[in-house]
Design a protein around this nucleic acid. Structure first.
Lengths: 106, 106
DNA sequence: TTCTTTATTAGCACTCGTGTTAATTAATAT
DNA sequence: ATATTAATTAACACGAGTGCTAATAAAGAA
């Protein structure tokens, strides 16, 4: 479980996390479509996508002049299984968290 | 779900991730005990602990001259529930991951 | 008070990450 | 060939992050 830190590092930037959430919500998107997750230039987005790709979090596909990016479930499974493997440690507090969220939504 | 990125950012540094794993494995530890997770000075560890504390990942307790650090389950629950809320997306690949890990351990 | 132990803060150096614009590559169309 | 569209790479500026040593603070013991 060595590359977990690099996955976390990739997810730790707000712009990149916004890209991930966009891909989770809308599925495959081109670099151009992803640009508006932040008020940022195309080259900046391109490099964020490179970081995500190198961390194994996204796939890249070519379609005409576009580069289409999509999430790579395997990377999420790696992190997800790490959390689940320590679930007994935090599960109890999850109950309290859910109760708090429920209360908040009233 | 705003502070997820800052939690990921805190976990994204190798030294800090090592601290987290140490606390997961051994429970509460003093700043001094945690120093040997890396070949690093005491002030450096102290600042990493500050980052983890500000991200809400660890608790701080005073015992004699020592500062004792322990994990804060609520923070893990926050991230854990995020992953679980997207589990249907990556769960299938988790099966493949487990199969691969099982094969690897033979 | 003074000394010891433990940890943190201050100050500085240096690297890394992120942003920009300009230039380049890639794919396609005219 | 030339132009258009989409994306990336190059080159640079700059702030943030991390490491060190020295100084300071906090807690307790002599």
């Amino acid at each position: 479980m060595e590359n977990l830190a690099s996955i976390f590092s990739a997810l730790g930037d707000p712009t990149r996390f916004a890209i991930i959430e966009r891909l989770l919500a809308n599925g495959e998107q081109s670099a151009g479509e992803l640009q508006d997750v932040a008020n940022i230039s195309a080259p900046a987005i391109s490099r964020h996508l490179k970081v995500l790709h190198e961390a194994g979090l996204v796939n890249r596909k070519i379609n005409r002049q576009q580069r289409l990016y999509s999430l790579r479930p395997e990377a999420f499974a790696t992190v997800g299984s790490w959390f689940i493997s320590h679930q007994e440690f935090w599960a109890k507090s999850l109950d309290r968290l859910e109760a708090a969220l429920k209360k908040e939504s009233n």
